[in-house]
Design a protein around this nucleic acid. Structure first.
Lengths: 149, 149
DNA sequence: ATTGAATTGGATGTTGTTGTCCAATTGTCG
DNA sequence: CGACAATTGGACAACAACATCCAATTCAAT
């Protein structure tokens, strides 16, 4: 139900958020998140255009989060690469349905609305801080995920 | 976020539920739901294999719902053609994560769980009966959707 | 200025979804 | 039985998603 692109984008952001504020290279992110390097670069381009990450070229460059984890919602990440598109009008194009959705599409849109809300109300910081048996992207349960550099 | 296949399947089922219990031909469904005929036949095959509809060949044949609308949930339809696949294990394949999801994937799975629940708790009958400005698949607001035959 | 590190963009390949077409099959009806 | 109606299955085409590769560009550091 979620695209690979979304999955990859969230992993990348989770990694960046768990690291020191210094820039991380695409290669570093790819290794840590187990995402194919070449494709990850495309995903990161999307995140960059969407204003989620900042990219810096040249030696010492790499990717950094634009916002602090406390201010970055999952929804922003998702929407940057694969926007949740609410059902606005009748997909059948029935003129009479206009803006009002029929009961069927109301249910489908409800699911989209729930997804939006769940993602909007979750910040990256929450995900990183949440006590859990397994830390995001980290192979050692309960261990604080910190820089390897 | 939803596949075309799911959209088409739901339209087809909504149409069948709004009709008399007699079988409806793929052509009839295609016209009524504005779904490409040839592709619809594939979708209906899926619904048939999934036990949602029954198909009858030959003259006078066509598609019928297996269950009564009151007993058919939207989830059954969705799962027949494009199953909602919950996140069971860590997508990174980290051994240590095992069955426990990290906070990130917990959130993603939560959305899937919400979708499942919304669809599970909605029957076709509810969708057909719900008072609305626009009846499913019907071009005339407020008009009861009934057989054209 | 030169070198090396890093992103960027384009071209390309691969796979899955969507969609079409048609012959074969199975059934009803007269 | 014969004619017709309908699904079934397979092959195929178009397009988007996923993925790879490489040359060009940009920038820091020396």
């Amino acid at each position: 139900m979620f695209s690979q692109t979304v999955e990859y984008a969230l992993r990348a952001v989770a990694f960046l958020g768990g690291q020191a504020p210094e820039a991380r290279t695409t290669d570093q992110i790819a290794v840590a998140t187990r995402v194919p390097k070449a494709y990850l670069s495309k995903v990161l381009q999307g995140l960059s255009r969407g204003g989620v990450v900042h990219s810096q070229r040249g030696s010492g460059g790499g990717m950094t989060l634009v916002k602090k984890p406390e201010e970055l919602t999952i929804l922003e990440v998702v929407n940057a690469v694969d926007p949740i598109c609410r059902i606005q009008t009748c997909p059948l194009g029935l003129a009479s349905h206009g803006t009002r959705l029929c009961p069927l599409h109301k249910r489908m849109d409800k699911v989209l609305a729930q997804a939006e809300e769940t993602f909007r109300s979750t910040t990256l910081a929450e995900i990183l801080a949440e006590p859990s048996e397994s830390v995001p992207l980290c192979d050692f349960p309960g261990v604080v995920s910190r820089s390897v550099s």
